[in-house]
Nucleic acid binder design. Sequence first.
DNA 1: GTCTATATCTAGATAGAC
DNA 2: GTCTATCTAGATATAGAC
Lengths: 205, 205
Amino acid sequence: MTVALNKTDKATQILNGALQEFLAHGYAGTSMDRVATTAGVSKPTVYNHFQDKEGLFRALVQKIARERFQIKFNSETFGDAPAESLPRLLALMVDTIADDDDYQNFVRLVIGESGRFPELARTFVTYLSKPGLELMQDYLEQHAEFSDADSQALAQIIIGSVVYMCLTQYILHGRDIMPLSKERYIETMIGLMLKSPRTDVAHQS
Amino acid sequence: MTVALNKTDKATQILNGALQEFLAHGYAGTSMDRVATTAGVSKPTVYNHFQDKEGLFRALVQKIARERFQIKFNSETFGDAPAESLPRLLALMVDTIADDDDYQNFVRLVIGESGRFPELARTFVTYLSKPGLELMQDYLEQHAEFSDADSQALAQIIIGSVVYMCLTQYILHGRDIMPLSKERYIETMIGLMLKSPRTDVAHQS
DNA sequence: GTCTATATCTAGATAGAC
DNA sequence: GTCTATCTAGATATAGAC
């Protein structure tokens, strides 16, 4: 009766322990001993639920990418004039990353292992990068100001600048070396986005 | 007489072996045994030149960041009209990253270890990210079209979009999931950059 | 300075009791 | 299904000969 419940609990327990350990020590730096201890179970129990270390790691990363770090908001939250809503959207994206140590460590882990676990990197792109991109793309397409642009490419450029900022400032600890405040970044980005639509200056009118 | 020479050779030999191993297997996944074998020396020789595994890793990353992956060109190479020179500069940056597997693995390694070796991440920012940023900033400041912008923030936005593209497409293997060709990216970026300078649209004129 | 050989420990994974 | 106890391999690091 409580069997199914207990089984689920143990699996969740193990995944929670594994998450802590892998986030803190990386894939190769994590031992199954410590996973078991942190999860509060014995090592054979871990191996009873997951085939081996690789299997546990794969299951963990896929679960976390699909469930825990999913985007919680959508583009309709940001419906009004871009001069106001775009700064809000960008600030929310920066803050969401900057305030979440677990997410930063998850990014470190996935990028660090992306050479040895390419399919996990693709899971990350599918469930985290792409939805973020689509959110931005939807936003752009809902605003007439940007209708003449390649919204997919433009969305990648905007998201890219947000992510790079978080990468250098927080993940790579570069705040003192390459300082850039959120405010300055956003103001400059808005300036770029809200210039007059092009009159074919790009093709030397 | 040949002592100094030999010592240098051995140290270089060890660093070369260590580079291969760390790039392929990460920090924790690399064994000193394999470093020694790949370098063609014995293990005690490795320990004779470097205090321990951490010391070797730190020396290696710092050397590689300072020497091997330094930017080889400067902004004066791109002196003419932005409509032509900016696409060339962006394409060169993308290609430089896309064609260099070692560099991609170095990025994976540094980001992956940035939580446990923050000072190495800062070395990376200092010797690789920042010079790239300054190259772009110099370029922007040499062109009157961009003189009214915050060139440092703008440079981070541009570099950020380049790096993010390389990160998702190549490092995270996302080409099939979030496709974006170099040409489409560059064309869109140029379109953004070469719009008419703002006439205060941003503040709802 | 460099090697062979080794000490010591901890890793991933499992056998077998319950 | 879960545990205690254990196997085996491979890890970091070094002692001691040359």
